[in-house]
């Protein structure tokens, strides 16, 4: 793409190899921010198309339930297995297992892994769908009918994703917790009554869980749709966009998770 890189002197090439990714990242972030601003603009101003929102609620929510149940269920089993094994080895005391597990689930694992799964399933799906619409000129046709693509395509996904991310995260907590309880009971003989110990969980944990779910739910559709809207070329472009969507969404989840966890830690210390 760049003109004959081997003709450039060495220090130019070194600068270019640093600068190119930086510019690329900056462009991507700028594009995402613009789409996000437009999405907010149309969310507040445009008319709500409830049928489209319900369709997306179904698409994002109902069709992810089995996937989320499966993956988060396994996650609960894995975590309890590891934690229980360690606790047996060190203290032999499994009284706190359930309570601490629920707290950890709320603080990190449920919102983060649910969001990663949404990025995987929903993010890639959105990018693939919108990308295909771009290459088949459907997005141009929308614009010719005076329907703004962001208003028409992104806003319903944005609203539906926020709602469903919260709902699915709560669902994920339940599934993981129950799956963990099963393993704790069968592998370590912890009885359910001891395991379902809510004494550790406070408002702080619930709030941080829901905040994360909300933020991730708002981020994923914007990034995924942005990846879809900038597709050029045929099937190659669509594949590329889908990949970009998964990676960017997942990275955004990890970065935001770090930011919110850090803020949460600061808040917890102030309390």
């Amino acid at each position: 793409m760049a003109a004959a890189p081997e003709r450039m002197p060495l220090h130019h090439r070194m600068l270019a190899s640093v600068g190119e990714p930086v510019i690329h990242v900056a462009d991507t972030v700028k594009g995402i921010m613009r789409t996000f601003a437009l999405t907010l603009h149309y969310t507040l101003r445009g008319r709500k198309r409830w049928d489209a929102i319900f369709e997306q609620l179904h698409e994002i929510g109902n069709r992810s339930v089995i996937f989320i149940a499966f993956t988060l269920g396994f996650l609960g089993m894995i975590l309890i297995y590891q934690a229980g094994y360690q606790a047996m080895k060190i203290t032999g005391d499994l009284q706190l297992l359930g309570g601490l597990f629920l707290q950890l689930l709320l603080r990190v694992f449920a919102p983060t892994i649910t969001a990663m799964m949404l990025a995987t399933r929903v993010g890639s799906g959105m990018a693939a769908q919108i990308g295909s619409m771009v290459v088949t000129e459907q997005v141009d046709a929308l614009r010719m009918c005076a329907a703004q693509p962001v208003d028409y395509l992104v806003v319903p996904r944005f609203l539906a994703s926020i709602v469903m991310s919260v709902v699915l995260t709560i669902f994920a907590v339940l599934v993981s917790y129950l799956a963990g309880a099963m393993v704790a009971n069968t592998a370590f003989g912890v009885n359910f009554y001891t395991f379902f110990d809510m004494s550790f969980v406070g408002w702080f944990d619930v709030n941080i869980c829901l905040t994360k779910a909300l933020v991730f739910g708002a981020t994923i559709p914007v990034i995924a749709c942005q990846a879809g809207l900038i597709v050029t070329g045929g099937s190659e472009g669509v594949g590329q966009a889908t990949t970009t969507a998964v990676v960017n969404c997942s990275l955004a989840v990890v970065i935001l998770d770090f930011v919110i966890s850090g803020l949460g830690y600061v808040v917890l210390n102030l309390l």
Binding site: M133, T136, E137, D140
Partner: peptide, 12 residues
């Protein structure tokens, strides 16, 4: 303006 697109561009 009416536009007939090359790839039909029907909303699927």
């Amino acid at each position: 303006i009416g536009m007939l697109f090359q790839n039909y561009a029907l909303f699927d």
